[in-house]
Structures are given as C-alpha cells and as structure tokens.
C-alpha cells in the first residue's frame, strides 16, 4: 500500500514538473534565424498591364518596384510607375493625362518561423504606402447650352497642373515559386489625403491612384526576382550542405 502511494505521488510530481517545463517552452518566442539582409526583390505588376490591355487605352498603368528584405520581417519598398488616361465621357467630354508616379512604404511579414520547420521565403504581408504624383491634364469639348435663352459655348481646360498625395493600406502574399523567383498578389485600399474643393476643375484620373473617387481599391499581381548578396548566397549553400550531411 505504501509502495503504491509512493509511486503514484512520484508520478504526479513528475507530471507537474513536466507540464511546468512544457509551459515554459511554449512561452519562449520563436527564434528568427534569418540573416539581417535577405536581398532585394525587383518585381513588376502584371495586373496593371492586364488592366491596361482590357481598358482599350482608356486608362493605362505600368509599374515596378524594389523591395528590400530585413530579417525576413521588415520589407521597405519603393514603387515607381507611369500611368495615364484618354477618356471620352457619354457627353463627349474628353479627359487626357499621363505622368509618372511613385510610392514609398514598408511591409511587415506576419509569417513566424515555426520551430523545427524548414525555413521559408514565403511572405504574408501587411503594409502601408505613401503615394505621390505631379501631373498635367486637359479637359476638352465641354459644351454649355442655354435651353431657354438660346446659345452654346464650347469650353476647354488645358494644361491644368496638380499634385496629389495618397496613402494605401496593403495586404497580400508572396511565394517563392522557383529559386529566387517570387509571385504574389496584394489588395490595396487607397485614400486621397487631400480632396478637391467644390468648384475646382478636378481630374477624372490620378496616375498611380486611379479614378478620382476619394477612395479606391486595387488588386496587384507581381512577378519578381530576388537579388541576394554573395555572402548570403554562400551561407544558403552551406546551410543546405549541412542539412544534407545531417540527413
């Protein structure tokens, strides 16, 4: 009887110690073993090219970006592009513009490396962008008709210059489909930081932002290549070799 009591008490004690140790292990944060600088991904947006083809020249946008990878966690980015519009409204009013645009921002990778799992280059990102463009636009063939007193007057506004600034909230994924080749998509919510005052001759389209609605949503689909530092490439090779030796 005494023995049974002894064994059961020691078993309970062991279980308590083990569970407390296990809890301590759980609380430990995952270790980020990624190098400080993981290279630069240079990528082009395919969705904007496809959108330009489908719009038959009404609106067009071409953009590319360079994104640095620090500790596979913080990814500052520069996006540059060229966009324009050649629109004719149902009332035959013409709108024309084209200009370069730029965005700067940062993405945060939300994927945390799991212990004992294979290191991955895939990214699940959320981020912010600040976009800006300075452009000129023309609005032509506006006809004012006086229905009661009679008479018409054609009006055109040419070379109106403006600067627009906006911010974007970005979320998306990026997957390494081949070695150093990345594909991914992002969903963007765009908001203008300054809206046009009533009575202003506001542009119909803003390069890099899209149609001038105050708020826009956009999906981008990127294909890119990661350029790494030679030291990082060597490190990656050696880690693979040690992996194969241990196996």
């Amino acid at each position: 009887m005494q023995r049974i009591l002894k064994y059961t008490s020691s078993l309970i004690l062991c279980m308590l110690v083990y569970s407390s140790l296990a809890q301590k292990e759980k609380k430990l944060p995952p270790v980020n073993t990624a190098p400080f600088f993981n290279g630069v991904i240079v990528q082009a947006d395919v969705a904007s090219i496809a959108g330009s083809i489908f719009s038959n020249g009404t609106t067009y946008s071409y953009e590319a970006s360079a994104q640095a990878d620090f500790k596979h966690k913080l990814l500052p980015v520069i996006e540059l592009g060229y966009a324009g519009a050649n629109k004719l409204s149902t009332e035959n009013i013409g709108f024309k513009t084209n200009a370069p645009f730029g965005r700067i921002g940062i993405d945060l990778n939300l994927l945390t490396p799991k212990k004992d799992a294979r290191p991955t280059s895939n990214l699940f990102i959320v981020g912010l962008r600040l976009g800006m463009t300075n452009f000129k636009y023309n609005i032509s063939n506006i006809i004012i008709t006086d229905d009661y007193w009679g008479g018409t007057q054609p009006i055109s506004y040419n070379n109106i210059s403006t600067t627009k600034v906006w911010y974007e909230i970005v979320a998306g994924v990026k997957v390494e489909v081949l070695k150093n080749v990345f594909m991914g998509w992002t969903v963007r919510s765009k908001s203008l930081l300054s809206n046009d005052a009533a009575g202003n001759i506001s542009p119909w389209f803003i390069p890099g932002f899209g149609t001038n609605n105050g708020n826009n949503y956009e999906i981008s689909y990127t294909i890119g290549y990661r350029f790494q530092l030679p030291a990082n490439v060597k490190q990656a090779h050696s880690s693979k070799k040690t992996d194969s030796v241990t196996k």
């Binding site: 629109k87 409204s89 149902t90 009332e91 009013i93 709108f95 609005i139 506006i142 006809i143 004012i144 006086d146 009006i155 506004y157 009575g199 202003n200 001759i201 506001s202 119909w204």
Partner: peptide, 13 residues
C-alpha cells in the same frame, strides 16, 4: 461664371 461639375456632368453657368 463657369462651374465645372465633373466629367460626367460637364460644366454649368
């Protein structure tokens, strides 16, 4: 006075 509304609406006096 010319008052530009939008591309869809044009201009009014």
């Amino acid at each position: 006075i010319n008052d530009y509304l939008s591309l869809e609406c044009g201009c009014i006096k």
